[in-house]
Simulated assay, not measured.
Amino acid sequence: MTRKLIIRERCFEWGQRTYLMGVLNVTPDSFSDGGEFNTITAAVTQAQAMVAGGADIIDVGGQSTRPGAEQITLAEEIERVLPVVRVMRKEIPVPISVDTTSSSVAKAAVEAGADIVNDISGGTFDPQMLPTIASMGVPIILMHIRGNPQTMQQFTDYQDLIEEIYSFLTKQITAATAAGIDKGKIIIDPGIGFAKNSEQNLEIFRRLPELRQLNCPILVGASRKSFLGRILNQPDPKARVWGTAAACCAAIFNGADILRVHDVKEMRDVSLVADAIFRQSLQVLPN
């Protein structure tokens, strides 16, 4: 695996420490914070707070991908995402990721100042996504999914969960490199909660090391998700912070490089301690 990736003059050295991607949903209907940050001022203020809390990347999404989420038009998605990205680019120093499955949204967002494309379909929903990413030269996050957010929870029957995730990601890494994307700019995501039930989500954590063989940095997004709610008997996503912390520890111990989280400040503490234990590289922060 390429050991480092430079994005907007920031060096991501895989294996040295855990990086945090802060979730910024500029949507009215996301599962845990829908409607909170869907104005430019609220979104930029939240982005600044996450950077102050230790976020290494801010991930902006204009289309909710929760189970059963309503599909919006490309025009609506662009209208939600672009103004926020444009203002954020002037206000925050860290790389900006755009969470989209559309090549046209990805292209417009990168032109507006985004640095990374986070595609929950792994490049499968839009046949132009991989060629578009190749032409722009930006990193892409390829996630495993079956079906789409409207149908995905009907597709949780697997013969061997990790083998099928591995196979899908192998295929999409091959397609991405064939399209001209540098292998060193590909990040993979097993897709916690996307066409997986609660037990399968737990299995991903246990078997995460098997995905290291793909030689790409691994992103894990478990923050506030429903499988944690089931374990904790906690229906309020915002009250799942300690469950998220436990899942983040498990992900770090099993080889995750990036954690996609809502509660950045808390997960920064979790990752600092877990890194000190697991990576044997205690980083002393300035007072």
Rank of each mutant, 00 (worst) to 15 (best):
T2N: 03
T2R: 09
R8M: 00
E9D: 14
E9R: 12
R10P: 01
C11S: 13
E13F: 03
E13C: 06
W14R: 00
G15N: 06
Q16M: 04
T18D: 10
T18Q: 13
L20G: 01
G22I: 08
V26T: 12
S30L: 07
S30V: 12
S32D: 14
A43W: 06
T45D: 13
D59V: 15
G61D: 03
G62T: 11
G62E: 10
S64A: 08
T65R: 10
P67C: 10
P67S: 12
L74K: 09
A75L: 07
A75Y: 11
A75E: 15
E77R: 04
E77Y: 01
E79K: 09
R80G: 07
V81A: 08
P83D: 14
M88N: 15
R89K: 07
E91A: 11
I92L: 07
P93D: 10
P95Y: 07
I96Y: 08
S97Q: 04
T100I: 13
T101D: 07
S103R: 04
V105H: 01
A109I: 12
E111Q: 13
G113S: 05
I116V: 14
I116Q: 01
N118I: 08
I120W: 05
G123D: 13
F125A: 13
D126Y: 07
P127R: 09
P131R: 11
P131F: 10
P131K: 11
T132Q: 00
A134Q: 05
S135I: 03
S135E: 15
S135A: 11
M136Q: 06
M136E: 03
G137W: 10
V138G: 09
G147L: 14
P149L: 11
M152Q: 09
Q153H: 03
Q154N: 05
F155N: 06
D157N: 12
F168Q: 14
T170E: 15
A179F: 00
G180S: 00
I181E: 09
D182E: 14
K185N: 06
I186E: 06
I187E: 06
I187R: 00
D189G: 01
P190T: 15
G191I: 13
I192G: 06
G193W: 01
G193S: 01
F194A: 02
A195T: 14
E199F: 04
N201T: 02
E203D: 15
I204Q: 06
R206F: 03
R207M: 07
E210G: 00
L214M: 12
N215M: 04
C216Q: 05
L219Q: 06
R224F: 00
K225M: 01
S226Y: 02
S226A: 12
F227C: 01
F227E: 04
L228F: 03
L228H: 06
I231A: 03
P235W: 02
P237R: 01
P237Y: 01
V241M: 14
T244G: 05
A246H: 05
C249P: 05
A256R: 11
A256V: 08
I258C: 04
M267C: 09
D269I: 12
D269Q: 14
S271K: 05
V273Y: 06
V273F: 07
D275L: 05
D275H: 11
A276F: 09
I277T: 08
I277M: 08
L282I: 13
V284Y: 07
L285S: 11
